[in-house]
Simulated assay, not measured.
Amino acid sequence: MKKLTQVAAACLLAAASTAHAADPNLGRNLAATCANCHGTNGKAVPGAGMDSLAGESKAKLLQKLADFKSGDKPASIMHQISKGYSDEQLALIAEYFAAQK
């Protein structure tokens, strides 16, 4: 019975990761949570004191997110928010913002 439970859990994990990969809008949907601070599609309001994310390189965005997640970059809330995402989700978010103009 224990073996069956382990196989079922593995199948569920595989199905969940396939579902993420199959959704072409997942990066956009995840990035939408950033709009409250960084503006719609990562275009911050000028003079609001927030960084615009639109058009930044994916590598630069990923590095910033990794620094927030690890605590290397101080923040008021980004270190908490970034910990709520997997590395794969952060990569999708960074890819989405890098594609915005």
Rank of each mutant, 00 (worst) to 15 (best):
S52M: 01
G39L: 05
I77V: 15
P46H: 02
F68C: 03
S57E: 13
C37L: 04
L61N: 09
G55V: 11
N41W: 07
Q80H: 10
L92H: 01
A75R: 00
M78A: 05
A54D: 07
K64Q: 14
G39W: 05
P46N: 04
G49K: 05
K64L: 12
S52K: 02
E88K: 06
H79Y: 06
D67G: 14
C37S: 07
K60P: 00
P74W: 03
K73Q: 14
S76L: 14
I93E: 04
K73I: 00
L61V: 10
G49Q: 05
A54S: 13
I81Q: 13
G49H: 05
A54G: 08
A54E: 09
H79K: 09
G39I: 06
L65V: 11
A66Y: 07
L65R: 01
K43I: 13
A54F: 09
T40V: 15
Q80D: 11
G47I: 10
H79S: 14
K60G: 07
A35Q: 13
Q63V: 05
M50Y: 15
H79M: 03
S76A: 12
P46A: 12
I77Q: 09
K58L: 04
Y85F: 15
D72S: 14
M78E: 05
Q63K: 15
A44E: 01
S76H: 07
L65Q: 11
E56S: 10
A54L: 09
S52A: 13
G47S: 06
P74E: 09
A48I: 00
K69F: 03
S70T: 15
G39H: 06
G42E: 10
K69D: 08
E56W: 13
S52E: 02
A59W: 01
G55H: 08
G84W: 06
A59D: 15
A91R: 00
G39F: 04
S57N: 14
A66G: 13
D51R: 01
I93N: 06
S52C: 01
A44Y: 00
T40S: 12
D87A: 13
L90H: 05
Y85L: 14
G71A: 10
G49T: 06
Q80V: 13
I93D: 05
V45K: 12
H38A: 08
G39C: 05
K73M: 12
S52D: 02
A44M: 01
D67H: 06
M78C: 04
A48S: 15
C37W: 02
L61P: 08
P46V: 08
I81R: 10
K60H: 12
D87N: 13
D51K: 01
G47P: 06
E56T: 02
S57L: 09
G84C: 09
A48F: 00
E56V: 00
G55C: 09
T40Q: 14
G71M: 08
L90G: 03
S76I: 11
K64G: 04
D87K: 05
L92S: 08
K69L: 04
K60D: 15
G49P: 03
L65E: 07
G49V: 05
A91C: 00
A54Y: 10
P46L: 03
